[in-house]
Amino acid sequence: MMNYTGLDRPKKPGYFLFWKTMFVAICLLGIGFIYAAADFVDYNWRWEQVPQYFWLDKDLEVRSEAEGDLTKIDKTAAGYTIIIQDGSHEEIVKLPPDANIFLMEGDYVYMGDTIAEYRVSKPGILLEATYVTLKVSMLAIVLGIIVGILTGLMRISENPCLRWLSVTYVELIRGSPLLVQIFLWYFVAGSLINAMLDKIGLDPIPALWYGVFALAIFTGAYVAEIVRAGVQSVHRGQSEAARALGLSGPQAMRKVILPQAFRRILPPLAGQFISLIKDSSLLGVIAVRELTKATREVISSSLMSYELWIACTIMYLVLTFALSVAVQYLERRAVR
């Protein structure tokens, strides 16, 4: 049986085998070229150094910063507290419970002596930064959806005030670069708001939140257009049927129009949110230590720019790929 769906002459089986092989060959060639080029300029690959930036797992030595008698070692459930008497000054060293202490009470300690050693096992800077990127993106996505739905519905409202507000918002946001908007949020709105909070005695809002606002407001403008298009794409007969049954406008919107619109706008929304994850890389400029900024920091200390930029790219791909898989799952579930 032939299961051929194209419009041209059916291809022979060898055709597909050949071109699939070709695809793999091109991919390998690309990777091979990068390695060959790096080899040519004598780049020293140090991939084995990369994992420590994702998970830190090593012995840490604690050295004394003072000189004097070790007067006391206190053990509690929270860990050890060591007191070194340096003349009239008491130097207090706190250690975790699993620390291996090399000294005893009464020992004399010189500056730089190894007091103890303990094992640290915790997420590395790049993993922490990935978490920040994820957190910022998710918060911005949730806020962006809310802002986008509201302004998208305002856009098709009869009320001219709501409609013009929405148009103004969308045009302003879409007409200026995201980087500039981030600066505006942090250096203008942010410094203003934080100064006001300071005046009435409240804590300032961290930079991360201004980043979230900037991304959410930026994305909201695009989501608004997507929502508007989705709502308008639902056949007029649907709202007529709902209204003819006696549903009010908002009821018809909620029960009949929006559920159908959402199914249609899921793919463009997914694209928008994937963009948002990538755009979060700009937040480094306002001192939010997300994946890109953390990568730059690590590179400036380790000088392994090739490995780390590749690792950084892979982390973004993991995030965006996870998101598109999640959306595909939603789409399949909402196939009606």
């Binding site: 007969g237 049954l245 549903l247 009821q251 159908q260």
Partner: peptide, 30 residues
């Protein structure tokens, strides 16, 4: 409108709801 039923040329059933939900939704909402 709740007192005036309407049947359309193109049916206009709600495609995202099961047959029974199509019939119960307005009863519950309105």
């Amino acid at each position: 409108r709740a007192e005036v039923g309407m049947v359309f040329q193109s049916f206009n059933l709600f495609p995202h709801m099961s047959v029974l939900d199509n019939i119960t939704m307005a009863q519950m909402t309105v």
